[in-house]
Simulated assay, not measured.
Amino acid sequence: MTLLGSSDLDVFPLSLGGNVFGWTADRYTSFAVLDAFVGGGGNFVDTADVYSAWAPGHSGGESETILGEWLETRTSADVVIATKVASHPDFRGLSAATIRAAAEASLQRLGVDAIDLYYAHTEDPDTPLEETVAAFGALVADGLIRYPAISNHSAEKTREWVRIARDLGVAEPVAIQPRYNLVDRSIESDLLPAAEELGLAVVPYSALASGFLTGKYRSSDPAGQPSPRAKGAASYATEDGLRIIAALEDVAAAHDTGIPSVALAWLRAKGTVPIASASRVEQVEGLLAGARLDLTADDVATLDAVSATATVAA
């Protein structure tokens, strides 16, 4: 288990992504995926109020609703829940009023007394950061959330958030959630050093690069692929991207495991707690394996080298 930053949140070293709940995984399948994850030792689930507003007929909140219904029927499940504010169609931005209204709506859908980890989903240039930081602090003081966190913020904004929180004497963030994986290592130059300096846990999303790092998508043409993520995954299938897949295959063979497990283990070796989702129950085993696989120093060096200079379309 892993403590997130300066918090007392003791989590499994991999978070189950809830972006698929109610989208590519219906209610029944979502329940089964959650059961398999928790049954395998997982206890950390990530969602957002906007999931899955992009799907036809959806308005946002579908993932939180399914997760809340699962929690209601699994009263013995002891899980750490992370969700986010800023992108829901009805709660855009990070004004104080929006943050509180969105948190109350998320609490209702989730059916919990307090949100364990509450992320500012994206930067809001229209709201002073002082207002946002104070609003998150007020949520902690009032018991609606346990810890603030930050997603998709620059290193500069992350440092500024922490400085303001300290100046105001309110709860500081304990984690950041950036995009980070073997085909996108851009945060290593600035955001990762900032997180280390500030003592923030790093909980990266897109850990498997829209499914590309599963090894399932090896063509730059998504035609004929049934998955809604095929287009995103196909964009990574460049010569550099395929060299990364080949290196993952070699390491996976040496450990008698799957490519996704190695990609997740690499992120863990970088000191992060990656997020990965599963639309089918049979995918959960590979996620759990990635949380338990310890790569050798040579494995990490091999993957570092093949991905260090890669130019991969996003």
Rank of each mutant, 00 (worst) to 15 (best):
G5Q: 13
L9P: 04
L9N: 08
P13Y: 05
N19Q: 10
G22A: 09
G22C: 08
W23C: 10
A25K: 09
Y28E: 15
S30I: 15
V33T: 13
N43V: 08
F44R: 10
A48E: 10
A48H: 07
W54F: 09
W54Q: 02
P56N: 00
H58G: 01
G61F: 02
E62V: 04
E62D: 11
S63K: 07
E64Q: 12
I66L: 11
I66C: 00
E69R: 12
E72Y: 13
T73G: 13
R74G: 08
V80S: 04
I81G: 01
T83P: 00
A86N: 06
S87W: 05
P89L: 11
P89T: 10
L94M: 11
L94G: 01
S95G: 15
A101N: 09
A102H: 06
E104T: 11
L107P: 13
R109M: 09
R109N: 04
D113M: 05
Y119S: 05
D124M: 05
D124L: 03
E130H: 10
E130C: 04
A134D: 07
A135K: 02
A138W: 00
A138P: 01
L139C: 00
A141L: 03
Y147P: 05
N152H: 03
S154M: 01
E156Y: 06
E156M: 06
K157T: 12
K157L: 10
T158K: 04
V162N: 12
V162Q: 11
I164D: 13
D167H: 14
L168E: 15
L168C: 13
V170C: 15
P173K: 10
P173T: 07
V174C: 07
I176L: 12
D184A: 08
R185S: 03
I187V: 10
G199I: 05
V203N: 14
V203G: 11
P204N: 13
P204Y: 15
S206K: 15
A209M: 09
G211H: 07
G211N: 04
T214F: 02
G215V: 01
Y217R: 00
Y217S: 04
Y217P: 08
S220Y: 04
A223I: 01
A223D: 08
G224M: 08
P228V: 08
P228F: 06
A234K: 04
A234V: 04
A237L: 10
E239C: 05
E239F: 09
G241S: 00
L242N: 03
I245R: 03
A246F: 05
V251C: 09
A254F: 00
D256A: 06
I259P: 00
I259C: 00
L264F: 08
R268T: 07
A276Y: 02
S277I: 02
S277Y: 01
A278Y: 02
V281T: 14
E282F: 04
Q283A: 05
V284L: 09
V284I: 08
V284R: 14
G286Y: 12
G286M: 14
L288A: 14
A289I: 15
R292M: 07
T296I: 15
A297Y: 09
A301T: 13
T302L: 14
L303S: 07
S307G: 06
A308I: 10
T309S: 12
T311G: 04
A313Q: 11
A314E: 12
